[in-house]
Design a protein around this nucleic acid. Structure first.
Lengths: 305, 305
DNA sequence: CCGCGTTAGTTGACTCAGTCCACTAAATAC
DNA sequence: GTATTTAGTGGACTGAGTCAACTAACGCGG
């Protein structure tokens, strides 16, 4: 569960924006269209040939209601419909010239309105606002489909991100205390401080500019590599990123001449364990511990390379 | 007139958010309240003693409509009204205990809804979304006053945040390499690992649920406290947070019986230096170094307590 | 103090956006 | 070939929101 004051702030913003959009939409009162009419007209105007069913889905309308509105639009000569040859139940909607004119007129008014709003801002401010809008949209719009994940080496800030995300995750999920975050900070910090590019590496999985996963290989000496801090963020699970990161580690360790790859984990991390099993690791030992508060079962795994 | 594609993007966002809010507001269908009811109840619940006229103004409602809704609320025992002694035309609206319960229940549901939405996001993304919301609000809402910052002790994830934000900031701003982030991780990690609540502390400045600043006090022994990792995020500068954090440190160090407070900084950090001077620190030594790549001027400062 | 324009709030009368249900026809699953 | 799902439509309704007309209190100028 996210931070409460974060949520309060978001609610506050939503109240504000409800109001703001309400004001903007009042402008449709000058025209014979309701907000819903305008949304439909916009959708039809910008995606020529949509079906009514698609509109119902995208705009979350009642089919009967939409049907009536389309009927009215048809009567007013704004659109024409014809059955879809590929599916005779369905019909494709196309805008007439007059419909297009109306659509564009609505667009002009809407633009003018926003332009008027933006005109009151200082230079650079509209850009800042729009960029913030894009941020929100990318985060909250499920249809703005997530960019594909990529895996790359670590950069400034990434080690901190590892500490933060894991510290927070294990605290929220398993009630581990700050000693765990301390351990992560220690491991990650030492990795960075003594980083040996010839034998060590840090992979960061990133999606749309946001970090969503990580893993480290550190040198334990004696030809043993250690896989550490494997983590995939909640938002990116089920994409096979964990497996991908572990595969990277195995390939890297083999290539750098390590003899063995070892790792330490805790048994409640089922998904991780499944990956270790699948990639050929074997369990060498386990011990119960209370290193971070609640009791847990630490496990050492090993892979011969 | 602003850039056209900027406006198009803003319109696009508005369409998306109209939809988004529409979805959120569907949830009120579970309750006997409409969106308008909920907005009114929220306003009344959070500003006890408002007048109907104020509601009409703030929520842009029809007075007749509001009057009827208030009448209903009164009948249901959610609110009570009494004439305003200062203006007998007007009436003050106060919520009854039952009304407050309802108000809080609505709040809980609304929170849960947003929490559910946020749960699908990656760690750090809710913060990013909310911070973008604040940006928009600050720009578009003439009445918006920035959320007040609060200063609190550290929690899970905060130490990682310190490492990440400073690692990234110094890399971007001054081109410092990963050795700096390693140093921060080391300092922060050791702080957490050896944390002694009797002599040490970490303050996090938070605004609207987003971390915007930090500072640590660590024990250097011999009655010397060390102020470390002072940082205020770009988005929150100019609010005096840096001064506030340093003041906290001084008060804490004095109270815990330290003799001296020392710190290490670099001279290109003008704002920080100004704070140190103002709070009575004196420069004891400086040396040029290349610890993090580019040449810099490290300084040791000291304050007698 | 009186009139006159204004503001706070209320009631009556209405309308029209949006919903629910039942139905037809085509498509798809089994 | 039958059963189930999906696309679209019309009938019937409801209730959120609007508009106009009203009362009562305020406040300003003379």
């Amino acid at each position: 569960m996210s931070n409460l004051s974060l949520i309060e702030t978001a609610r506050d913003f939503n109240r504000f924006y409800t109001n703001f959009l309400g004001l903007l939409n009042k402008a449709y009162l000058d025209t014979p269209f309701t907000l819903t009419d305008a949304r439909i007209l916009f959708e039809v105007g910008s995606h020529d040939g949509v079906s009514a069913a698609a509109l119902v889905r995208d705009l979350q309308l009642d089919p009967a209601y939409l049907s009536r509105i389309l009927k009215r639009f048809r009567a007013e000569g704004l659109i024409e419909t014809s059955p879809d040859p590929a599916d005779l139940r369905s019909q494709v909607i196309i805008v007439t010239d007059q419909g297009r004119e109306t659509f564009e007129e609505l667009g002009r008014r809407s633009n003018a309105q926003i332009a008027a709003r933006f005109d009151r801002l200082a230079s650079g401010e509209p850009e800042a606002a729009v960029s913030a809008m894009c941020t929100i949209r990318a985060l909250l719009d499920p249809a703005a489909k997530p960019a594909p994940a990529i895996i790359r080496a670590h950069r400034a800030g990434d080690i901190g991100w590892i500490v933060q995300s894991q510290g927070r995750f294990y605290a929220e999920e398993y009630g581990w205390d700050l000693r765990f975050e301390a351990l992560v900070a220690d491991v990650a910090g030492k990795f960075l401080a003594n980083f040996d590019p010839a034998k060590e590496y840090c992979w960061i999985a990133e999606r749309g500019g946001v970090n969503v996963g990580s893993v480290l290989i550190t040198n334990s000496g004696d030809g043993v590599a250690k896989l550490r801090l494997l983590y995939v963020d909640k938002s990116a699970r089920g994409l096979g990123l964990g497996k991908l990161l572990v595969d990277e580690c195995i390939r890297f360790s083999w290539q750098k001449g390590y003899r063995e790859l070892s790792l330490w984990t805790n048994d409640m991390l089922e998904t991780a364990r499944a990956i270790y099993v699948k990639t050929g690791f074997r369990l060498v030992s386990e011990e119960r511990h209370r290193m971070f508060g609640p009791e847990a079962n630490g496990q050492n795994w090993m892979l011969d390379l």
